[in-house]
Design a protein around this nucleic acid. Structure first.
Lengths: 222, 222, 222, 222
DNA sequence: GATGAATGAGTGTTCATTCAT
DNA sequence: GATGAATGAACACTCATTCAT
């Protein structure tokens, strides 16, 4: 069948437009027009715009979390005594991230979507992601804990999000940055390469010394 | 005058709403209703919603870039021969960021706005920021270059954005993260404190070893 | 067969929803979803929503008009010379009304539907009812004429509709009224009881003195 | 100014269409198109369709309840000791009803609206009417109580609604009934005349004997 | 200098109906 | 005999913007 079915066409179009313009700026008419599909088809197949957004995420996050879980199974088996080393853990995370879009659409879209999930999640999406993928995330956090036993829990929490910020922020805004880099430094950076460059930075960040103990700061800002 | 004038009231309200909900999700009605101002006042005083958005940014970025320029003047004078050390440079950046909201509204809003500028900038805003603050940004980049002479230019470019990702991403999503952290680790993190924790991570990231030389990667993803 | 067939399930569900919310506010999706039946089934089995509405009425009015006809046969045979007395006639009408729902669903639904027929009938329903049950109605009117020989024809016409108004209006809005009555007067009124209370009022209305002859009224309103 | 303002035009058009077709069957497009007004004007001036419906009712019920209150003031002053006689009370009610449309649009519309309020009120309208006119209604009920001291409270409650059914039902469906009556009895009935005919029926209904005491009825229907 | 009124374009959603299978 | 998919039309409502005053 040459022409993919309506549901797929809607999802394919929606994820691209969401990635390009965000949720609010992408109207259902945008999507259905470009997908050459009837306007009512979205509500027929998904029920609402919110449900469509969730479906778009599910198509990436379902295989991703499944793969990551399998990979963690393997790593935990291999490093039965003592935790998985930090580098290996992060390497595996990167690998899992890279694998998903290979069979789906594009890594860039995936990263943009992750960025949106953080910055535009209007509640319903945050809830959806937590409900469906929270367990996998917590499993990863537990592994990370074993890999960084010297880090206080709270510190690890923040550093994990520092790291997520680095990665998601960079990869989700990749196009704009690459345009600048291309013109200024004459070397085109592929996503794979960018990840190679991210790795030492992330590792160094996770292993950075703890901040100097708090001498009283003048006045709290808020 | 007890009641601030219309323009100020609009700006004060708009920045809060933009920070909370983004640009598209914040309607002029939202703003004018909450500001207790006539609906047409925005278009009257600013011309358009886009111009209002720019005005909101200008109110933060104008004093910020001015302060940063002054500070760099001082640092360059002090470290006349040889560049400003990396830690000092970053420290100054943090200080300048922290100073602005002290006289304006709130650091949280400032950070949220910076996050929006990256993730929701619809072209007009990106252009506006580049035009008005590009020069200051480049000056900072030049200082950074002197501070990290061993880093290849392209590598520095990317690491700078890694760092920006870390900071902006974390600070702009601070509320949600702090909620989680509060409940799980019983210690409330102020913005000042968070910046104290960010510093070693950012420094370590900038000084991380270069990635291992590129052995041929299987297949480029895109 | 434990599970009634599709047609019946649709009718059973539709009559309840129509009675609760009216025709326009009840969508075919409402009906088919609640009846656990395919959305297209209504159009398949009935042809259109209008035809479904008519079918719902027919399921009540067919047995009703048949019973009333039979009852009138009996009464006319008994009171061969001279008409059927008014009280007997009205009593028979009430009896016939009460019998139908006994074998169908509920009197409340029947009454609500009659109310809808008057207040929401969009033409097609009015026509349908006139065509199918007009003859029986006229037969009843003829009997009523014999029972109230002193009433001018036009007066009888209007009083009949006054009476219908009283009955249908009260019974079709019964739930709301009963709620109020329950809370204010601590006595719950069953439909049967309500009909007992209606009877003397209806009889008195039909037998009320004629209005005083028309002395010229100031100005006609329309 | 020959052309009435937008708000009035909307209300004038809406009340006619609501009266003709009901609330659900009347779309805002219907209204705005016929009123030659922009579609968004309804939401601009009234906020929502529900609010428009309420405004339509208020334009009739506000002057009506005000007039009725004044009239009851007068009657209570005149019949200081002992209540207002039933005939006088009902006469006054009829007079008040007739007065309102004289200065507004049409009695027919008023009656249709009252019918809709009973049969299509979707909650918000019922609540609105109760809130705004409940007190006046209760005052009238108190007067009615003095006028019919021999009637048990519950019985009076039901008879009041029997009477309301008679009146509203007849007047709100007047057009259809009048068409039939015209063709069959060659005498056209004006609203004023109809009310003259209603009076003895209503009075007789209110004064009808109480129902025979309840001999056990076979089986309760529901 | 400022605003109430108005507007055309657009939003997500729901509708009864159709049709290929 | 029955249904999942699809559709065109319509829905109430919101939007940023304009304009006469």
């Amino acid at each position: 069948m040459a022409r993919p079915d309506t549901v797929t066409r809607i999802l394919d179009t929606a994820e691209v437009l969401f990635a390009e313009k965000g949720f609010a700026e992408t109207s259902l008419r945008n999507i259905t027009t470009r997908a050459k599909v009837n306007l009512a088809a979205v509500n027929y197949h998904f029920g609402s715009k919110k449900a469509l957004i969730q479906a778009v995420f599910a198509r990436y996050l379902d295989p991703f979390s499944e793969r990551l879980n399998l990979a963690l199974d393997g790593l935990e088996a291999r490093y039965r005594n003592g935790g998985v080393p930090l580098e290996v853990l992060l390497e595996q995370l990167a690998t899992s991230v890279l694998e998903v879009p290979a069979e789906r659409n594009s890594l860039k879209v995936f990263m943009k979507l992750l960025g949106l999930a953080y910055t535009q999640a209007q509640g319903h999406l945050r809830r959806y992601i937590q409900e469906h993928y929270g367990e996998t995330f917590h499993r990863f956090v537990r592994c990370l804990r074993l890999a960084t036993p010297d880090l206080p829990d709270a510190e690890r929490f923040w550093r994990l999000h520092f790291m997520l910020g680095t990665v998601i922020f960079t990869l989700s805004g990749l196009d704009a940055l690459r345009d600048i880099a291309d013109s200024e430094y004459q070397e085109h950076m592929s996503v794979r390469e960018l990840i190679r460059h991210l790795r030492p930075v992330v590792v160094a960040g996770m292993q950075a010394p703890l901040p100097a103990s708090l001498e009283k700061v003048g006045s709290a800002v808020e």
